[in-house]
Amino acid sequence: MADEIRQRVIEIIAEQALVDVSDVSMDQSPADLGIDSMGLVESIFALEESFDIQIPFNANDPQAGDFDISTVASIIGAVEGLVAAQRS
């Protein structure tokens, strides 16, 4: 399950960044991948649709809120948390 989430999140980020899945590494930030603020909003939307979750995110202050978008790894972790909460 965790692998599935990781794989899907990376696919979504890669699609938004217009790069190959193999070019996405865990320690990169969205900005490193060339994802701007609107790209970030679209990525959040795609994650919500894909996993049927609600992500707290305000484009005015992307760092605020509990959803850590600082790196690919942190995004995967945050999505895993929301998916787990969804099931409990």
């Binding site: 909003v41 959040i44 939307f45 995110f57 305000n58 484009a59 005015n60």
Partner: peptide, 11 residues
Amino acid sequence: VKAWEGLRVMS
């Protein structure tokens, strides 16, 4: 409102 909500800039 739903359309604006999607943009994630609403307070």
